[in-house]
């Protein structure tokens, strides 16, 4: 028995030596994997944390899950990219008002050999149609993320019902995993440009086939990908830190931080991963102002 007690003591000791975090106010931001995996939030957040003496807890999941977390009052604000879902979130009373933060665009990537011959398609919907006709492998996030929502909208535009076809693989994974699988099995997929660029060296089999090399060359205005930030309604969810959430919105939409968003990634990728502010209207062409 004594040995058992010694073991317990060791375990407690092992457990206890972990450093306790100082008790600072916390702001919980539920967001999409793209904002975290691209490194954008790591680059931006320290300045907010320093200025306001708080710690921002980033829960990076798909847009669908981020909104689901916020619907239960488990986040103070959301930074997501699926306009219809965002509007629904607000109209249900869970969120206050939506603010434009930044935008980038989606691109259609696939094998460099391009078996369905979609390279040069003017719109994603036309390319989707060709993929369906060729029966070429297509991988879908399948996770109610912003990218998945966009993909479903494009299938509707193409008047194709992809679910149930053998060539349509619904993965239920994040963007990074989906790109890795897509590269491995030689499929097509829809991705945000930022995640694709930040992982490009790990995806030798994939190339951008629709959407161009930069956002300025993207010929399909429906591929715009605007990110909005929405503070969770503190009247609906009393535990929410509404004051801090409002401060965060003011901060991230301030000219200084917007400028940081604009230059983020230029050094490493030769182009910005995110563009500050409101997305241009779909009519304007090319899609960067």
């Amino acid at each position: 028995m004594r040995r058992l007690l010694i073991l317990l003591a060791v375990l407690i000791l092992a457990a206890g030596c972990g450093g306790r975090q100082p008790d600072v106010p916390r702001l919980r931001l539920a967001t999409t994997t793209s904002t975290q995996d691209s490194g954008l939030l790591d680059a931006l957040l320290p300045s907010f944390e320093e200025r306001y003496g708080v710690k921002v807890d980033v829960v990076a999941v798909g847009t669908g899950q981020a909104l689901a977390i916020a619907r239960r009052g488990d986040a103070d604000l959301v930074l997501v990219h699926a306009r219809d879902l965002e509007d629904q979130f607000i109209s249900e009373g869970h969120g206050l008002e939506r603010h434009d933060v930044m935008f980038n665009d989606f691109v259609l990537v696939g094998p460099t050999t391009d078996p369905a011959g979609i390279r040069g398609s003017k719109t994603a919907a036309a390319a989707f149609k060709k993929i369906a006709e060729a029966g070429a492998l297509f991988t879908s996030r399948g996770d109610h993320s912003g990218t998945h929502t966009k993909e479903q909208a494009i299938w509707r535009n193409a008047a194709v019902q992809p679910e149930g076809n053998a060539w349509y693989r619904s993965l239920g994974q994040g963007m990074g995993e989906t790109l890795l699988v897509t590269s491995e099995i030689g499929a097509y997929t829809l991705t945000d440009r930022g995640t694709f660029l930040s992982m490009r060296e790990k995806l030798p089999a994939l190339a951008i086939l629709v959407g161009g090399d930069t956002i300025a060359q993207n010929t399909d205005p429906t591929l715009l990908n605007p990110y909005g930030i929405i503070p969770v309604n503190p009247n609906r969810h009393p535990g929410v830190n509404g004051h801090l959430a409002t401060q965060f919105v003011t901060w991230i939409t301030s000219p200084e931080i917007q400028q940081q968003i604009a230059v983020f990634g230029q050094e490493r990728f030769g182009q910005s991963l995110f563009h500050p502010g409101a997305a241009p209207s779909p009519q304007s062409d090319p899609i960067v102002r």
Binding site: L8, L11, I12, A14, A15, G16, C17, G18, G19
Partner: peptide
């Protein structure tokens, strides 16, 4: 590593 040990250590305790 510390957090992993802390969480799992307390859970086993």
């Amino acid at each position: 590593i510390r957090l992993s040990l802390e969480v799992s250590g307390f859970a086993v305790f």
